[in-house]
Structure formats: structure tokens, C-alpha cells
């Protein structure tokens, strides 16, 4: 079309190349975007919502009569049932919740509610079970992880987390919640616990019973610090918390330990000289308490919240000794 045109200069070539690069980026962005979609949007209804009891439909306990047809909830609408606490379950790996109310035969005012949480894994179930454990509760043997309080029974069983909660702490209802939990265990079968072997690595000396908790996500408020086991050690009026987390290999454990120390320092912590008794450990004072962080083999571990530096160190030494016995 054109009569004559000048030879393009260097500037033109550069701009041209930049524009072509932008076009390539647009194409790549569009391609990436088309992969991001939610098929459920296009007309399929989430499978786990509505007025059905799901697995609880056939669940019956002698002496208890259902008060309603039960309800089921999926990740989309879990907060319709337990708004405010849904995130705890969603972060751990939640699949569905099934709930149903039952009353003692002939007494509609004496009722209990069954909450059956189906989690993504046994570990996820253990995590929500352990992080809500009521202190001073009576351990049960219905499943490997089960206990009762004055009005309720809680248990983890494979990927299930079950709560049976009564409206009052009367003897009749106390028996009924136990019966319901046992009926569940019988119907479902007892499954392997979700607590990994790490849970048994805490030094037994001074360990508060049933205090081991699995924090599945963003432990201690640090984004990305996942799958951390914690345990409580009462020491007089104060409490020490030991923690450990297995990482893929020792180098990742070291990196994680350094990352956590940086997190503490970034939140107002002051680092003290490393303790001679614990080579490689790092001691941080934060808000008037001592945190000790170290890595041992594939483990990131440490002790938090000690007001007394000596006690903190002593527990850390015990913990490291236990961890060093673990065969790689």
C-alpha cells in the first residue's frame, strides 16, 4: 500500500519487540485464565446441602427418638450451621457435616444433637479433635481418641470427628450421649487414629495428659507454618509449650526453624546469645517470655512461653534428646 517508508530505527525495533512480548503475555494470561473455572457454577448444585441427614439418616439409638430429619452441610454452607467456627474446620480439610437432634423417649425437653464431621483425612479429624479438646475431661475407650465432659462426648475416628452434645447434664442424658457415641462406633467400626507418630515424641516427664494438639494450618499465627504438634508442660504457676513439626528433610527443617525465628523477631522478639547447652538453638525473648527454637534431623522443634529461661532450656534439652533418638 505504501509508497516508500523509512528504515525502522533501533527504538522502533525495541518498542515492537516489547509490544509483541505484551501480546504473548496476554495470550498466556488468557490461556491460564481459561483453566481457572468452577464447573459447579454452570448449573450443577452442590451435592452436600439440603434437608437430609446423609449418613445419619439410618442412625438410631435405643431410647432416643429423632426430633428432626437432620441436615447436611458442605464447605459452601458450613457457616450456616457453625458460623464463626467454620474456618477451623475448613482450614484443617473439611468435607461435610451431618447433624441431627434426638430426644429421650417421651421427654422432648431433654435432647441431644449429633454432629458428624467428615474430614478430608484422619489427620484433619485429629487436628480438629485435638485443638478443641476440653481440659479435665474423662478419657473414653470408644475409639483411640475419645473423651466425655459433663454433657457431651467427643471423638475422632479415622476421618470422622463426632460430637454428641446434650442440652443439660442430667444422668439420663449423660447415658444417652454415651449410648449414641457407642452406637456410632459400632455402626462405623473403629478406625485408625489420625495422630501421626510425632505425637508420641514429646518427653513424657511433666507432660500434661491429653494436651497434644495438632495445629494444621498457620500455627502461632505464622502463615505457612502448617502441621505443627504442640504439647503443654505445667511448671508451677506457668505453662511451657513444646512444639515439633516434621519436615521433608533436615535442610527444610533448618529453613523452617530460621523462618520461625525471623517471624518472632519481626513481631517484637529480641534474640539472645545462643545457649551453650543447646548448640544450634536460638533463644528469643518476646513479650517477657522465652522462646527456644531448634531443628533436629527432619524436625523443627522448640519450647514457647517460658518465663524462666532455665526451665525453657531444660525442656528443650529433653525434647531434643527424644528427637535425636528417632531413626531417619
Amino acid at each position: 500500500m505504501s509508497p516508500a517508508h523509512a528504515q525502522p530505527g533501533r527504538g522502533q525495533n525495541l518498542v515492537g519487540a516489547a509490544v509483541l512480548l505484551v501480546l504473548a503475555l496476554v495470550a498466556a494470561g488468557v490461556y491460564w485464565q481459561q483453566l481457572q473455572y468452577d464447573p459447579a457454577q454452570w448449573g450443577r448444585l452442590g451435592a452436600t446441602s439440603g434437608q437430609t441427614a446423609g449418613p445419619l439418616a439410618a442412625f438410631s439409638v435405643p431410647g432416643l427418638s429423632p426430633l428432626d430429619a437432620g441436615q447436611s452441610f458442605g464447605p459452601d454452607n458450613l457457616s450456616d450451621k457453625i458460623d464463626g467456627k467454620a474456618e477451623l474446620y475448613l482450614a484443617a480439610g473439611f468435607e461435610s457435616l451431618h447433624t441431627r437432634r434426638y430426644a429421650l423417649a417421651g421427654q422432648s425437653a431433654a435432647w441431644l444433637e449429633v454432629f458428624l464431621y467428615r474430614m478430608k483425612s484422619a489427620e484433619a479429624a485429629y487436628s480438629v479433635f485435638s485443638s478443641q479438646r476440653r481440659s479435665g475431661a474423662e478419657a473414653l475407650t470408644i475409639t483411640q481418641q475419645s473423651y466425655r465432659t459433663s454433657n457431651a462426648v467427643y471423638l475422632a475416628n479415622g476421618p470422622d470427628y463426632l460430637e454428641v452434645v446434650a442440652s443439660a447434664a442430667t444422668p439420663g442424658l449423660q447415658k444417652a450421649v454415651l449410648d449414641a457415641a457407642q452406637a456410632y462406633a459400632q455402626a462405623r467400626g473403629v478406625k485408625k487414629t489420625g495422630a501421626a507418630s510425632e505425637a508420641g515424641l514429646f518427653p513424657p516427664q511433666g507432660l500434661q495428659a491429653n494436651s497434644v494438639v495438632l495445629l494444621s494450618k498457620d500455627a502461632f499465627g505464622m502463615a505457612g507454618l502448617d502441621r505443627v504438634y504442640i504439647a503443654t508442660y505445667p511448671q508451677g504457676s506457668q505453662e511451657l509449650m513444646a512444639f515439633l513439626a516434621r519436615r521433608a528433610d533436615p535442610s527444610q527443617a533448618r529453613t523452617a526453624a530460621q523462618g520461625y525465628v525471623q517471624f518472632l523477631l519481626g513481631n517484637g522478639g529480641q534474640e539472645s546469645p545462643p545457649p551453650a547447652e543447646l548448640p544450634g538453638g536460638r533463644l528469643v525473648e518476646i513479650m517477657g517470655t522465652w522462646d527456644l527454637v531448634f531443628s533436629q534431623g527432619p524436625f523443627l522443634a522448640g519450647v514457647r512461653g517460658g518465663e524462666d529461661q532455665a526451665a525453657t532450656l531444660a525442656l528443650a534439652r529433653l525434647l531434643r534428646a527424644r528427637l535425636s533418638e528417632v531413626k531417619p
Binding site: G136, T149, S150, N151, V165
Partner: peptide
Amino acid sequence: KNGPTGGSLED
């Protein structure tokens, strides 16, 4: 503890 739903009298 275990709010906002609680569940156990021990909470």
C-alpha cells in the same frame, strides 16, 4: 473456649 458455638459445659 471453643467459641462461638461451645458445646460442652466444660467450655
